[in-house]
């Protein structure tokens, strides 16, 4: 059989082997309820699920809609549910899911716009609400030079800066599924990324959003966010650390009400 152009020089495994992909379809102008549609896709040794979806789009059914961009685990746009697990489809090999069928759906806990495309406005609003940028009481002037940082100070927050906003943690979080008001793992981890940055002075402003019932305190440390995270951000650890520091602040305020903040 012909080697698919998309996969470059991909070698076909076991001459002509095929696998079934059951893909979630939702076309609001055509149907009121979503359905799963089966496609037969050739098995290539070095194909990931995203390659199989692109094969469908290019050769079998051009109406299938999904997001993707970089194909290398950097852009964070191809997150989907594959056999029930939240995963980046560019990082999940078809071969590891044989003999199939492989069930591909949109990320859970989000409204579906069409097929595999989810609506992420809720996340974007929450992300903006925690001010994920460096906040200074007073900006230094350009003449005063850059804000210097030691390697140890960088190491304090670097892990949390690796987030690519792929939303796998939201799809995996059962608390977010039950309580859409929950701020959620990635946003709290990104807030911590700035709180723990030696150049930042905005922890108090973020605390007003996060040290609340809808913020960190809704988390029950299920830990699935850290299991599915493709970048090892470990949002569960970020939330736990936030709980510890907020608790210390709470007791400080209780025992020393005059201490301010």
């Amino acid at each position: 059989m012909a080697v698919d152009s998309l996969a470059g020089n991909a070698a076909v495994v076991a001459g002509g082997e095929m696998v079934t992909l059951e893909v979630f379809r939702y076309r609001p102008e055509e149907e009121t309820e979503p359905v799963y549609q089966a496609y037969e896709v050739p098995v290539h040794k070095d194909w990931v699920v995203l390659d199989a979806l692109n094969h469908i789009k290019d050769h079998l059914d051009g109406t299938l809609s999904f997001r993707w961009s970089c194909r290398m685990g950097v852009c964070g746009s191809c997150g989907m549910m594959v056999n029930g697990d939240a995963t980046l489809t560019c990082a999940t090999f078809v071969e590891s899911l044989l003999p199939g069928p492989i069930r591909v759906g949109p990320l859970e806990n989000f409204p579906v716009v069409r097929d595999l495309i989810i609506e992420m406005n809720d996340f974007m609003e929450k992300l903006e609400s925690v001010k994920p940028w460096i906040i200074r009481d007073e900006e230094k002037s350009l003449e005063d030079g850059a804000y210097l940082q030691t390697p140890a100070q960088l190491a304090d927050f670097k892990q949390f800066s690796m987030c690519i906003n792929c939303l796998l943690c939201y799809a995996a979080c059962p608390v977010y599924g039950l309580e859409p008001s929950f701020t959620g793992p990635a946003v709290i981890a990104l807030a911590q990324r700035y709180n723990l940055d030696s150049r930042d002075q905005g922890a108090g402003e973020r605390n007003a959003i996060l040290n609340t019932d809808e913020g960190i305190w809704q988390c029950t440390l299920v830990g699935e966010c850290s299991v599915v995270c493709p970048k090892d951000v470990d949002p569960a650890a970020a939330i736990q650390r936030y709980k510890v520091s907020s608790t210390l602040q709470w007791y400080q305020k209780l025992l020393m009400p005059w201490s301010g903040k």
Partner: peptide, 12 residues
Amino acid sequence: MKTTIEPFWWSL
């Protein structure tokens, strides 16, 4: 700022 009692229960 909304106050929350959760830190107390969580510390226990």
